[in-house]
Each structure stands twice: as structure tokens, then as C-alpha cells.
Design a protein around this nucleic acid. Sequence first.
RNA 1: CGGGAGGUAGUUCAGCCCGGUAGAAUACUUGGUUUGGGACCAAGGGGUCGCAGGUUCGAAUCCUGUCCUCCCGACCA
Length: 492
Amino acid sequence: MSKEITSRAKDYSQWYNDLVIKGSLADYTAVRGCMVIKPYGYALWENMRDALDKMFKDTGHVNAYFPLFVPKSLFEAEEKNAEGFAKECAIVTHYRLKNDPDKPGKLMVDPEAKLEEELIVRPTSEAIIWNTYKGWIQSYRDLPLLINQWANVVRWEMRTRLFLRTAEFLWQEGHTAHATKEEAIIETEKMLDVYADFAENWMALPVIKGIKTANERFAGAEDTYCIEALMQDGKALQAGTSHFLGQNFAKAFDVKFSDKNNKLEYVWATSWGVSTRLIGGLVMAHSDDEGLILPPRIAPIQVVIVPIYKGDEEKGMIDNVIDKLLPQLKALGIRVKYDDSDNQRPGWKFAEYEMKGVPIRVAIGARDLKNNVVEIARRDTKAKNTVDVNGFEFYIKELLDEIQLHMFNRAKQFRDDHITIVNSWEDFEQTLDTKAGFVSAHWDGTAETEDAIKEKTKATIRCIPLNNTLENGNCILTGKPSKQRVLFARAY
RNA sequence: CGGGAGGUAGUUCAGCCCGGUAGAAUACUUGGUUUGGGACCAAGGGGUCGCAGGUUCGAAUCCUGUCCUCCCGACCA
């Protein structure tokens, strides 16, 4: 089998697929639009999940689990939300199969077993959760309610891509209830900060925090905050969202509480989520034509040690050294793998772990034993270095931090180089076609103009950046007055 | 749902036009030699050719239908 990764320059789609599949993260399955996440990819997800989970808990949230199935009547209670998802729902209509009388050995749906009420496979859990919260909230003393769920959801998309858009995906969804509007908005913004912190400091993925326009807003939300990342092909990726839901769901599901004055009020809500899509973003933002490049903080394997030897005697000598080195590395909390399998030669292993994106490779052979050194190769720059064995665990520890930082800085440099300020329609179109990336431009604030721009260029408004500087200008398309720039891009 | 490509060994694919014993590489198993950037030799196992019809003495190959996958669009809180 060809192990080569398709060049980015040739075909980004193929390049991306190669990275995911040959990097052992995931693969296609027999089920349309679904993927299997392989052990290596799942280990990556677990590291991300654990880091996020801790951040949620540090901000006062707890985990719970709600059902996969949502009765249709509940699902449709919040009209805008239901409408927004209606076109991409999987629906359970029957609960039994039976033998097909016309085709021996085959099964058919038993028409007798039709459900009274259809069950929607959750595309998101607001409906079932708010129906539950109704029973949990009576008094202001029950608030705030800060719950997160780790779950799978299903969205029957027309066109799917590994990690970036699959029919079923894993995610977390936080759903909180608050006594006041102000508190809910603070929560919405706080969780956006958590996401940005995670993306930048754990995934080395620079993001722009912003607010979505009405067109791009979550169905049922008052405001959708987002973090937007830039991929190497110049397309933007929505990496996470945090929604201020106002009282929409409280009203739809009749969730009221008595305040201190014993007055009944609807609660204020937020929801926020990130998914396995983040892995797609990670792959597209950092990898090269040799394979994945994973940030050390979440890499399933941070250091791989490859022995190079002739015969059992040399192998024994190397083993002796490694037996001392492994505990030293593990004592520093480093995830290390000693690959002394003899099915493959060193060269094969080098290529394999590069494809899997392992941040640091340590090679040790007879030559090194004599000099009491090891060869250290970093994945991000491909630089090789010979290091003394004494104290090398501290060198590794520092190098991991350096790689993490370097990956972030490199991605940030790329991102910053691809934010282009334009003031005319000609420049706008030309920039999108030749340079791609984010385009910062004035917009008149209307949905019609946004739609027209999308129609003409396929670019959408990714967000109105938070902390945007106000400046007077004219809409790129209509010339109408505008008070601030927004970020446009073609997106995944 | 429109346009394009495809479905043959675990994987990547050839064979199809012009019908006649199922192929290659790689992976796998065994033995041996190797090991500082994807090793080599020898032997071996492995496929109802996506599915269903049809034409034919005979179909991976021709015809019809159908299902599925990938790519490009439309869709995408």
C-alpha cells in the first residue's frame, strides 16, 4: 500500500483524508457519513476531553446524561430550534423487525410495530434537557443550574467529511439556567473564553472570538458567540460555539422559578458545545505532507523511542539504558512509547511515527551508547539533535513545551498573515480568490447584503470580532455606512 | 438532489473496450539473512469480482435495474 500523503498543493481534500486515515485517527465505515474513530484517534479525543472536562469543573459545572431519543412533541416545542434542525434529523418510527415472508432469511420492518409518536435522534439536546429542567427548577435557590453532557448526536448532513462533518459525532454540550439575563450572558462569554483558552493553549490553534450575525446564529438563540480558526488552505472553521438562549427555551418548556420576592420568572439559558470536529481542525491547521503534527499537550504519544541495533547483544545493551530512561521520563509525566518491536526496521518506524504526528522521536543505537548520547528529532521542524543521556529527560520536557509554543506561533503567524483588510469590492473578490483567509471589511449590517455577498463569493461572515475597534466606513457591497469591520471567509 | 469518478484478495489497484481456468503490488503466515530514513530471499494462506435480473454453450467483462462509496456543487444551528 502506498503510504505517501497526497501533497497539499495538489489536492487539499485528498491531503486531509490521507492525514486522517494514514495517521490512524479514523476511517470510513459501512454507514453513510459515519466514521470509526480508531484507538489512536480516540486517545487524542480522550486527552482533549479530559482537559476540557477539568476546565468545565473548574468553572463550577457538573456532568449528567440525557436520552438519545427525543419525542417529536418535545422536539418541536421550541419552534425556531426545531425548524433549524428539521431538515437533518434521523427519526425512529418502528421498534421491531420480523422475518420477511417473501425473502427467506431476510428481515423486514414489522408494520405492526409502528410507534405512536416518532422519536427524533437528538441533533442537539436542548429539548429533552429543558423538559427535564422544568422539574428541577422551582426557586431561585435552584439556580444557577450548570450541567454539561458528553454525548453523541446525529445530524443527517447531505455531504460529510471525516471529523469536520460526520452524520454522527461526539461532543459535549453545556446547558445552564440562570436567574438573570446578565448572569446568563456572563456564563456565555465565560465558556467562550474556556474554549478559546483550550484551543490556543492545548491545541495550539489560534482562534478569533466573535459573535455570529443573525443569519449564522444557532436556531433558538438570542446571540451565538464563536471561536473561528483558520485552516492551511485558507478556509475558516467554526471551532466552537457558546449561545445565549435568552428565555426562548424557558418559555417553550415553561421553566419558571420564584425569585426572592416570590415572583414567578422565566429562567435565562445558555448552551455551548465543541465536538470531534476540533480534531479535523487540528489536522488541517498543523499537518504537513509527511503526516500529522500533534501538539504535545494532547498528543497520545509525546515521545517515541526507537532502538537501532544489530543482534540480541546490542538490543540488550540498549534495553538496559532504556530501562533507566523510561522511568525518568514517566516521572515527569511524559507519555512515552518504547517501540522495540522487531517486525519493522528503524526507517519504517521513523516514517510511521511522523505520519502519526508524535512530537519527539528519540533514536538510540550502538553508536550512541559509546558516546552516552541519543538522537532527538522534533516533528514540527524536523530538526535533529544529539543530546547527552544525562539529564535528557529535562531536555525532552522543555522541548515539548517549546514545540507546543512553536506550533501555536507558527499557526498564529499564518493566521495573522491571512487576515486582509480590504475597502473595495474588487479587492474583496480578488483577495478571496487569490489569497483566501479572513477578509476584514465593512458591512452594512443587513441580512440581505450578507446573503448577496454569500451568493456572489461563497464567503460568509464568520464573526463580528469581540473587542472590535469601532471605525466609520462604507459597506463593501452597498456602500452604506458601517461602524465596524467584520470577518468574512469561505468556510468548512 | 444535480455533475463526475468508482465498487475485483486485509489495503491500493490492473483485467472490462474485443466474453473463455481470478491477477499484481503491498499486507499477512513460516524459515533465513538483515536493521542509523519505509530491507531482501524462499515457500505459503487468502477473493460467491457490490447486489439482483437478463443475453450467451460460457459473464468480472455485454445489457437492465438497484444499493453503496469518494470528489465537485446545493445544504450545513
